[in-house]
Amino acid sequence: MICYCCHEALAVQLDIVNLFSKQVPLCEKCRREISVWRPGRRCASCHRRMSDEEVECLDCLFLLERYQPPGKTTCLLDYHEMNKMLFHRYKFMGDCALAEIIAMFLPGHYGEYDVITPIPISTQRMTERGYNQTAMVLDAKGIQYEELLGTSRVKRQSELGKNDRSRQENPFFISRPAGIEGRRILVVDDIYTTGITVHQAMEKLHAFRPAAIDVLTFSKA
């Protein structure tokens, strides 16, 4: 077995602790590097690293003017060089073995939510890539989810700046309105950059009166 991240062979040493557990395809060195959080002051809400002059997170203020905020935002991994490379390989090079790696950092229980829903990708992107990068991680972890949303967006978000993103029309639509009203929803996205994507998705969901919406992102750029 190899580490899916660095492709080094994994030395398996059977002992009483791991004898009956499934071996994970990630070496200790990579695990440590992936879970590093860079030091610095962070926004309490979106976990962005803030500069010294910032009193409040400017990104969050910008979003507050336009959208209803989520209950809380959970972020699993810092977006440092190592993880940038990881997500690049996972999303753009098609290295989907990494879904298993990212899934390892996901919490196992979601009792406080009625519905978990991933941010969708367009049909065109689906044909190209073959998988929804967010849903695939949920699958790898064995988490049940419902695809409440659909999207018509074709252009890559990563190619656009913040202002372009906010100026765009909301590309999301609700594909399953029945499952929303009065329920507690967790929206899952892969990378939270400006936050506009999840906020646009939440805007559509809010129209159907959910009880609460929280956000989970794998990494915060």
Binding site: A9, R89, A97, M126, G130
Partner: peptide
């Protein structure tokens, strides 16, 4: 050990790709 297989959510087909040369762009069975 350098090959990884999964069921593509898009059309359900079984895809196998090579992890060894993934950095050059994916080489897969489809």
């Amino acid at each position: 050990k350098y090959f990884y297989s999964y069921d593509a959510p898009f059309d359900g087909s079984r895809v196998t790709y090579c992890m060894k040369c993934i950095n050059l762009g994916r080489s897969d069975s489809m």
